[in-house]
Design a binder for these strands. Sequence first.
DNA 1: CAGATTATACAATCTAAATTGAACGTACGG
DNA 2: CCGTACGTTCAATTTAGATTGTATAATCTG
Lengths: 170, 170
Amino acid sequence: MENATKIHAYTLSETRKSMVEACTRICQLLGLPRSTGQIFGLLYLSPTPLSLNDIVEFLGISKASASYGTRRLLSWRAIKTVWKPGDRRDYFEVIDDISGLIKRMLNDFIKPRLGSSGKRVHDMLEGLEEEKDRGELLDAEYQICLDRLNSLVRLQEKLSAVIPVADRFV
Amino acid sequence: MENATKIHAYTLSETRKSMVEACTRICQLLGLPRSTGQIFGLLYLSPTPLSLNDIVEFLGISKASASYGTRRLLSWRAIKTVWKPGDRRDYFEVIDDISGLIKRMLNDFIKPRLGSSGKRVHDMLEGLEEEKDRGELLDAEYQICLDRLNSLVRLQEKLSAVIPVADRFV
DNA sequence: CAGATTATACAATCTAAATTGAACGTACGG
DNA sequence: CCGTACGTTCAATTTAGATTGTATAATCTG
């Protein structure tokens, strides 16, 4: 191809470097791959959509990482692809509605997880009764388990009540 | 000492095993050491306070891990020590107020982190102006950075507003 | 259809963090 | 004082998972 693309210097302004760094730290904090954060940070302050190769060059990461990271961000709908006619490269840009992203995270990750943990506590309460009936438990143990598990149920209910509030706020 | 303690079988009821497992999973999910979760799960359904050695025996982990985990849980005030007169072992039990624990986590981890991230965005906005003044930025880039950083500020404000609400709810 | 240029899949490697074993310090009981 | 039971510290190991290089598949160009 014409080497106009080769001219590209692939350097970032200080502001954008800071952004990449900040997102890296956040992801690290959340136990997510650093490279994913780098990519998001890069795209978040990009004036134009970027191709996989742009990302590789700007960040100095491998294409495999870039591909993995972008697909992950896509699956969270944190970024989206942009098509340029007559160009078979994929271009990426961040979605504009970050609040929406957070709401979705809340609903897709936290809420179902709260639900399944609620179910798990319920199962444990059932199992506890069975164990008691089979005489496998000391009374003291049965009592503690019952109390604590019930207090977990109440806590779970309170947490569930917070979700919709947060949802409206953000 | 008398070998009454040696009789101890160190086996857990199914219910308690499930609890240990569940806490392990949660910690894993949060990027915390699994062993820490195991310890908390063990103590959460324990009818009596447990010594370091009890923990080691019940869970089959090393003393070093147990020591590390308990101190970590202590520092979060998720568990507390219990002293038995005439026994130089430390005994541990979970605190009863889990809601309080969550509130504290919210205040000790999330809130300060939100604050410092707010400050960081502010710094970036200042840096951006400097870069612009020095003519180091294309107009398009300046504009995008300004927009996006400002939208981060707004988001940060909304999130900060949610914290006290959640605090009252839980 | 051959040749390029892209994105993905996968196994190998590399890194960071959790876990451990062993040495250490301390306090108690005889 | 010694010996013992306890908790902690720290270097070494193990493990999980992030990153990469290479091979593959797919899609366009000429």
